[in-house]
Simulated assay, not measured.
Amino acid sequence: MFDLLPSRRRNEDTFKSMLKSFDDVFNRDVFSPLNENFRSFQTDITEKENAYYVEADLPGFNKEDIRIDMENNQLTIHAKRDNKNEEKDNNDKIIRQERHYGEFVRSFYVDNVKEDDITAKLEEGTLKIEIPKQAPTKPTKKKIDVE
């Protein structure tokens, strides 16, 4: 026996499918195809009483490939990869060549930190940053005279 679907049910499924396609186009990130292939590195940030701790997964990077900047309360981690692998045969012809280029950048806002005491260490593909806190500065109040 045949399974028959009422025509209205089939139309509802088509309509739902069409709505889903419409939503996928307008609700996705413009760069999502790039993000799927070129993901940024994963980070964990924890806050303790005296410091913030950042752990970033950077497997395959050397410490020379990593730059950390602190400017205007923004901690920015740059990791750049520039690897080239070549395989040649006995006649010195290249039989396989692979290149891995890319730069990954993440920024985080941190406030009331001791910038001169920030430390970073790369251990087994994990970048560990300790950002010591300083006592928050109280906002000052100033009366401004109108001329």
Rank of each mutant, 00 (worst) to 15 (best):
S7W: 06
S7P: 07
S7L: 10
R8H: 10
R10T: 15
R10P: 03
N11Y: 08
E12W: 13
K16V: 11
S17A: 09
S21Y: 12
S21K: 15
D23T: 12
D24T: 09
F26M: 06
N27G: 13
N27F: 10
S32R: 06
L34D: 10
N35W: 07
E36C: 06
R39I: 06
F41G: 02
F41V: 07
F41S: 05
T43S: 13
D44R: 10
I45E: 03
K48N: 12
E49H: 09
A51H: 12
V54N: 00
A56K: 00
D57C: 02
G60V: 02
G60E: 01
N62C: 04
N62T: 15
N62P: 01
E64Q: 12
D65F: 05
D65L: 03
D65H: 04
I66K: 01
I68G: 01
I68F: 00
I68P: 00
M70Y: 14
E71D: 15
E71W: 08
N72C: 03
T76V: 14
A79D: 04
A79L: 05
D82M: 08
D82L: 06
D82T: 06
K84Y: 09
K84L: 14
K84C: 07
E87A: 10
K88W: 04
N90H: 07
N90Y: 09
N90C: 03
N91S: 04
I95N: 01
I95H: 00
I95V: 11
I95F: 00
Q97A: 07
E98H: 04
H100L: 10
H100D: 15
G102W: 05
G102H: 06
G102T: 03
E103Y: 04
F104M: 11
Y109G: 09
Y109P: 06
D111H: 08
V113D: 01
V113S: 01
V113R: 00
K114M: 12
E115V: 11
D116T: 11
I118Y: 05
I118T: 02
A120C: 05
K121Q: 13
K121V: 09
E124W: 03
G125W: 00
G125Y: 00
G125D: 01
L127G: 00
P132F: 03
K133F: 05
K133R: 01
K133G: 01
A135Y: 07
A135L: 13
P136N: 08
P139K: 11
K141H: 15
K141N: 14
K142M: 08
K142P: 01
K143N: 14
I144V: 15
I144G: 05
D145S: 15
